[in-house]
């Protein structure tokens, strides 16, 4: 099993619903976030393009954050999801420094926090909160090892990219372009 997410930049309007839904689902304190919006404008008026991306932890196959964690707090669980065990985390910040995507933050309670792909929801057969709430339905989630999953299907049909592939982290969040 290999969980992954595909996000359609052609449909995303950058409304930030994924950010709020994640906060209220996962008790992310106000002022912090596990996912966020990036908007890139190219060109000069009136020849313009915008790419809008909802970004989060890429749950990399080759995660620098897991490799550098001195206590084993950062670890993989089934399906390749990268997680942090708060009571094992000493808040040293090595993982924050190692992540090329800036996907982790220091929780005010003293540990490092990040996206979990809402594994608590997956266990109940639900989609991650961000995927479930998105008004443009621009996010697809599922098992890449299952050729019939939403995410496998959309990656077969569409052109896509990953972020900073040159970092060699093998990210598992794909952007449809």
């Amino acid at each position: 099993m290999r969980y992954a997410m595909a996000i359609d930049t052609k449909k995303c309007v950058g409304c930030g619903d994924c950010v709020v839904a994640c906060q209220t689902e996962n008790n992310v304190p106000i002022g912090y976030c596990r996912d966020w919006i990036v908007e890139v404008t190219d060109g000069t008026y009136p020849q313009l393009e915008i790419e809008i991306r909802s970004e989060r932890c890429n749950h990399c196959d080759n995660s620098p954050c897991v490799r550098c964690c001195p206590t084993g707090a950062s670890h993989y669980i089934e399906g390749g999801i990268v997680k942090v065990t708060p009571h094992k985390c000493i808040g040293c910040g090595a993982c924050i420094a190692s992540c090329p995507y800036d996907a982790r933050y220091s929780h005010p309670d003293g540990y490092v926090d990040k996206c979990t792909f809402c594994d608590h929801r997956i266990k109940q057969g639900q989609q991650p909160a961000c995927v479930a709430v998105c008004p443009t339905k621009c996010m697809y989630f599922g098992d890449l090892d299952d050729p019939n999953s939403d995410v496998s299907n959309v990656l077969k049909k569409r052109k896509y990219k990953t972020l900073i592939p040159e970092a060699g982290t093998k990210p598992q969040v794909y952007y449809l372009i």
Binding site: D17, V20, T24, P135
Partner: peptide
């Protein structure tokens, strides 16, 4: 109160609230 989530049977939102509704 923890969260507000859209009602799947509602044609105004089809189970998906917008950021303001979620917030």
């Amino acid at each position: 109160i923890q969260k507000v989530v859209g009602n799947d049977n509602d044609s105004n939102c089809n189970g998906r609230l917008c950021p303001r509704g979620t917030g």
